[in-house]
Design a protein around this nucleic acid. Structure first.
Length: 518
RNA sequence: GCGGGUGUAGCUUAGUGGUAAAGCUCCAGCCUUCCAAGCUGGCUAUGAGGGUUCGAUUCCCUUCACCCGCUCCA
């Protein structure tokens, strides 16, 4: 509508603007940064808080109307980042997060150590052939023929797991794709969970983990919430918070970082209703992202293929992603939110490992069952990035050359109050208006420099409205409202400014407005 | 983790084995009655650590960060 694909902005320009205007900085910048960590500046934290609050409102304070016409029931939670390490063993993260990998120095290929096996010659002569577990019998035969030194059948070999082989024998092993033996490295442990130590002494017995997802804190508190807050299945528990993953390759600005924020809601329902609720949340979550300004053409829904599904979602109705077309993924898309049917995997696991009964007894039907879970899990940090990318609008016709077209509900600064000149009577009136508005809105008062420079600066940080006080204000109590996108001005009474802003902040009015603007 | 590339002020670019230059931004002031105008002044840089050298931003090594491509991605 407003942006042909040709104007897809360069990521480096977006990153530069984020730094220049104080949205996002490299963490520990003055020490040269740290790979995978980012800090949010004065405007970045406003933007992030806005998105966080809107999500909380859409989930906890004003949750959507359910299929039966009544609002669904969701309560909030803020669980600890560090939990008993057994929680992560039960959840499957300790095992799944540390797959040892083997590199081939010759081919630069990398394999999971537990996916490799080795054919060891029974006669002790010739190369040991490492092969991938998925290799077809036909390919294995070819490999033996080519590299076996006269051997013709796998019967002449003993099949061993790569992980069971002593490293002193590695020199004999020919990698699955290598030409010379001895190029495979020892398996390297990739610990994708950050670990730490609880207490003053650092030993294995007090090792603990920083959570890689907020979801588990919700499952751990399922019984506490049920017993204390009068909720009944179906209901949800929502949580926003930091999560940590020791990513092998952090990339693409804040898209994949090692410390990030999640907004997750676990919806507990009867197994028979899982499909219905999955579809319900899938629809609702799309509405959310659209309502805060992500355009339809940059958002895409995608069902996961069977082989992509995580350990907890192998059964059930699968996972679907809400994806956004980021500049670095275009023309492809990157994940913004996943809606997963986690079945009863987590509660069952925690019941098994903890020994605490987590089944639900329906008070009406007296049916006892383990609830199924539908999980809409969104990245707050990724959401912030999507909002910035969506807002970044190149416009050579205006002095800033670029402006941020934020939806007013997420804009870090909602309005700027500008006395037309720094002299005469404009400043006191502007100051009074500013002091009134800041009680309700995040606003800025800017007195310095000429009006054009001030408009330009507000454009670049995405402030949707500027209220300017001039000589007419003194005589008739009107101010001009300058619209960021159209640069058009209208005069309204100074007493109507708060009401004007309040109306513009509403997502629905903005939606209609975007349509009108085109 | 691998390969390639980049690193001088907030940004864009100069330049040199011997005092690091400019434009824009930013800040202060003047001037300004609506879109980065004009005038004056000011702050700020060789990513970090070593080595060679009388002297290194420049040459060499290491490291860090970012970008691109692989790899990975519950």
């Amino acid at each position: 509508m407003n942006q042909p694909a040709a104007t897809t902005p360069a990521m480096k320009d977006i990153v530069a603007l984020c730094k220049r205007r104080g949205f996002i900085f490299a963490a520990s910048d003055i020490y040269g940064g740290l790979n995978g960590f980012w800090d949010y500046g004065p405007l970045g934290v406003e933007l992030k808080n806005n998105l966080r609050d809107l999500w909380w409102k859409s989930m906890v304070t004003c949750p959507p109307i359910g299929p039966d016409g009544a609002p669904v029931e969701i309560v909030g939670l803020d669980s600890s980042i560090i939990q008993n390490p057994k929680a992560w063993e039960a959840s499957g993260h300790v095992g799944g997060f540390s797959d040892p990998m083997v590199d081939d120095k010759e081919t630069k290929l990398r394999y999971r150590a537990d996916h490799l096996y080795v054919l060891v010659p029974k006669d002790g002569k010739g190369k040991w052939l490492a092969l991938h577990q998925d290799a077809e019998a036909e390919d294995v035969a070819k490999r033996i023929k080519k590299e076996g030194g006269g051997k013709s059948s796998s019967d002449q070999y003993e099949k061993k797991q790569f992980t069971s082989i002593d490293k002193s024998d590695y020199a004999n092993i020919l990698g699955p794709d290598a030409k010379t033996p001895g190029t495979l490295t020892e398996p390297k442990q990739f610990n994708l969970m950050f670990h730490t130590f609880v207490g003053a002494t650092a030993g294995d017995e007090n090792k603990a983990y920083l959570r890689p997802e907020t979801a588990q804190g919700i499952f751990l508190n399922f019984k506490n919430v049920l017993d204390s807050s009068r909720v009944r299945v179906p209901f949800g528990i929502a949580q926003i918070g930091k999560a940590f993953r020791n990513e092998v390759t952090p990339r693409n600005f804040i898209f994949r970082s090692r410390e990030f924020e999640q907004m997750e809601m676990e919806w507990f329902c009867h197994p028979k209703e899982a499909k219905m609720w999955r579809d319900f949340w899938f629809t609702e979550r799309q509405k959310f992202w659209r309502s805060i300004g992500l355009s339809s053409e940059n958002i895409q829904m995608r069902d996961h293929d069977k082989d992509e599904l995580s350990h907890y979602a192998k059964e059930g109705y699968g996972t679907a992603d809400i994806e956004y077309r980021f500049p670095f993924t275009a023309p492809g898309y990157g994940e913004l939110e996943g809606i997963a049917h986690r079945c009863d995997f987590d509660l069952t696991q925690h019941q098994k490992v903890s020994g605490t009964k987590l089944e639900y007894m329906d008070p009406v039907t007296s049916e006892k069952f383990m609830p199924h879970v539908i999980e809409p899990a969104a990245g707050l940090s990724r959401g912030v990035l999507a909002l910035i990318c969506e807002a970044y609008t190149i416009d050579a016709s205006r002095p800033s050359g670029v402006y941020l077209n934020f939806h007013p509900s997420v804009a870090p600064i909602k309005a700027a109050i500008l006395p037309l000149t720094a002299k005469e009577d404009h400043v006191p009136i502007a100051t009074k208006l500013y002091l009134e508005l800041r009680e309700e809105f995040t606003v800025e008062l800017d007195v310095k420099q000429n009006i054009g420079k001030r408009y330009a600066r507000q454009d670049e940080i995405g402030t949707p409205y500027c209220f300017t006080i001039d000589n007419d204000t003194i005589t008739d109590k009107t101010v001009t409202v300058r619209d960021r996108n159209s640069m058009a001005q209208e005069r309204i009474h100074i007493d109507k400014v708060a009401e004007y802003l309040r109306e513009k902040m509403k997502p629905s009015s903005q939606k209609a407005k975007l349509k009108a603007v085109g």
